[in-house]
Simulated assay, not measured.
Amino acid sequence: MPNRIIIDRIVIGNVQDDFHPGAFKAALAEFVSTLIFVFAGQGSTMAYNKLTSNAPISPAGLVAVALAHGFGLFVGVATSATISGGHCNPAVTFGAFIGGNLSLLRGILYWIAQLLGSTVACLLLKFTTHGMNVAVFALSPGVNVWNAFVFEIVMTFALVYTVYATAIDPKKGDVGILAPLAIGLVLGANILAGGAFEGAAANPAVAFGPALASWNWYNHWVYWAGPLVGGGIAGVVYELIFISHTHEPLPGGEY
């Protein structure tokens, strides 16, 4: 199409392709699935804080929170996979864009939906818990911003790499429910690895909702920069090394 700008495999997109009714349905699916995921994950953290009177998280508590986040993401991805691709994460969207599997304009639409979904989930949690504090992602004592930055890069790389291998790769075959299950499991494992150090967001939307609801932006940039770098690297690595370049970007940037 003459008005579609493609730089190598990077697709900018156009209004006709990326802002039609189907695109807004996909964005709505991203909103709902991100809301489901963040409500379950953030709610589990708040429930733990209530039950322990805000005591430092215990090993058993960390496992419970990791499972809640993993299950929540599993459901969020599974319920929106056939509509929007089941991103539930701006870093996944960015990784898909960098790999040429999503247009920039569609990615921006998804980002807006994901951030709104996370924000609404956190506001609903504040309302239903009578104003209880939403848990903001923060660094543990002894962990500096660069430690957290690398943690977020590595964890998000693992997450987006898994998304590519199970959901985006055209050679994957019919993996069915395995894709959202694998994506949920790798998130749960990441939280077990990094949760005690810096919260283990691996998702800018997951960090954005609580920060906005609590108006606490301290070190918030880490939870954007790390995941976007990690997601971008995963997109480039998987696309360049493992995906055959005989296929073209999908119409409208969908997968």
Rank of each mutant, 00 (worst) to 15 (best):
G194D: 00
G184C: 00
I183Q: 11
M132C: 01
W111S: 13
L240T: 09
Q114D: 01
D174K: 12
D18F: 01
L115P: 15
M46L: 11
V120G: 05
G72N: 03
K172L: 09
F31T: 12
T119Q: 05
A135S: 11
L51C: 02
A78K: 04
V77P: 14
F94H: 12
A202G: 07
G117A: 00
E198G: 13
W221T: 13
G194Q: 01
V154K: 08
L250V: 08
L123D: 04
H130G: 10
L62T: 08
I57P: 15
V154C: 11
D18Q: 07
L124N: 13
T52S: 10
L187S: 02
P2D: 12
L123V: 09
F151E: 13
L104W: 02
I98L: 14
A121I: 06
P227S: 08
Y48Q: 10
H87S: 07
A135T: 13
L228F: 15
L192I: 03
V175T: 10
V77Y: 11
G176N: 05
L185P: 05
L109H: 06
Y164H: 09
E198L: 03
E248S: 13
P227Q: 06
Q42C: 09
P170G: 07
I177E: 10
L240G: 05
P227A: 07
T45D: 05
T52E: 01
Q114I: 00
P249M: 02
W217T: 15
F157P: 15
P21C: 02
F242V: 09
A47D: 09
E198Q: 11
D17K: 00
V120H: 05
F208W: 07
H130S: 14
I98G: 09
V236K: 12
V75T: 14
A234P: 11
L125W: 08
I168E: 06
Q16E: 14
D8L: 02
S44L: 03
G184R: 01
P210V: 00
F31W: 14
I10E: 08
Y110A: 03
A60T: 01
N101I: 03
L105V: 15
Y161V: 09
L116W: 08
G13N: 05
S118H: 07
T128V: 09
L124R: 11
A225V: 15
T119E: 02
L185M: 12
S58T: 15
A23H: 04
N89L: 04
A196P: 12
R9S: 15
G173N: 11
G209Y: 01
G99M: 15
I177M: 09
L104K: 06
G99L: 14
D18W: 04
K172F: 08
V15F: 09
E198K: 01
L35M: 15
A121L: 13
A60I: 01
M132G: 14
T156N: 12
I10H: 06
V206A: 10
